[in-house]
């Protein structure tokens, strides 16, 4: 018998794992406000606090506009919080760095470089000597089944293959933390499922710390050790759910179905708040 899924955990304290091992990623009371086009202030997220343990896969889930992408950009160092702080291994983040790789919704490959050159470029920035780049590149392209397409230009690949190449580029630098901002949202359903499986396999093999933003409950339940649910904007954490189902997981796993329906119920409440505000406003 597999371990059961724990019920909704409404205590928003640092996770138990964070108590035993020092956190890889820590957010402390992070808040971010934007100036809207009309000159008013829009609060993207407010008072967000959580820890991610080394090697943990955390999914940030929430209705659109809840600031989950903003949080990811802040962790990546592409954006700064107005209040609070982000720590990596206890050190504050001061900007982007090769210790944190980012997968964007679009593959963001450089169109003037071949797939191989895209990976080599990242390796060069990470300080990998030229003589080692070839082996490292072929290893990671092999991991995402793109060995045959090393010399192709990005536009010659399908959407799924491009996102795979982006994953290889991100992994090749061996970052401590991988940050993903809905990387599969623009793909068709079948390709998405294949890539989710591949990501699960790569994560099991590499044990990277992952912070994965999505609005897809099924994706979150399939991939995550822990799902953090964010509220309607201004986003803050409202629920945390640990998923202990063993890996490799299958999409038709009945344990996951229960998680999906639980999380979905909570998410819908937050989405309804957004809709009510839009209609009412």
């Amino acid at each position: 018998m597999r371990p059961a899924v724990t019920g909704p955990d409404l205590r928003l304290e640092p996770s138990p794992q964070a108590g035993t091992a020092p956190a890889k990623v820590s957010l402390r009371n992070v808040a971010r406000t934007y100036r809207s086009a009309r000159g008013g202030k829009v609060s993207a997220c407010t008072d967000v606090t959580f820890d991610v343990a080394p090697g943990e896969f955390v999914c940030l889930l929430g209705p659109s506009g809840c600031g989950k992408s903003t949080l990811l950009n802040i962790i990546a160092g592409l954006d700064r919080p107005d209040r609070g702080e982000v720590l990596i291994d206890g050190r504050p983040v001061s900007g982007p760095g090769p210790d944190r790789a980012v997968l964007f919704q679009e593959p963001a490959l450089f169109p003037w470089m071949s797939v191989a050159a895209n990976v080599d470029f990242a390796l060069g920035l990470a300080g990998v000597p030229k003589t080692e780049r070839r082996d490292r590149r072929m290893f990671w392209l092999g991991k995402v089944h793109l060995s045959r397409f090393a010399d192709a230009q990005p536009h010659e690949l399908s959407g799924g293959m491009r996102q795979r190449a982006a994953l290889a580029r991100a992994l090749a630098c061996e970052p401590d933390v991988l940050l993903a901002d809905e990387p599969f949202a623009a793909l068709d359903a079948q390709t998405r499922e294949i890539l989710q499986r591949e990501l699960q396999r790569v994560w099991v093999e590499t044990g990277k710390t992952f912070v994965f933003v999505t609005h897809n409950v099924r994706e979150a339940a399939f991939l995550a050790d822990r799902v953090l649910l964010m509220s309607a904007p201004p986003g803050t954490l409202v629920e945390e759910q640990r998923i202990t189902a063993p890996r490799p997981r299958e999409f038709d796993d009945p344990l996951l179905a229960k998680v999906v329906s639980d999380v979905h119920r909570h998410l819908i409440k937050e989405v309804e708040k957004v809709v009510a505000r839009e209609i009412g406003g």
């Binding site: 592409l78 790789a101 450089f110 990242a122 920035l125 580029r169």
Partner: peptide
Amino acid sequence: PLLERAGRTLGAKGWR
């Protein structure tokens, strides 16, 4: 902007 952000997250900054 996405390409610039991708470059920055890979560790490129300034003149590079």
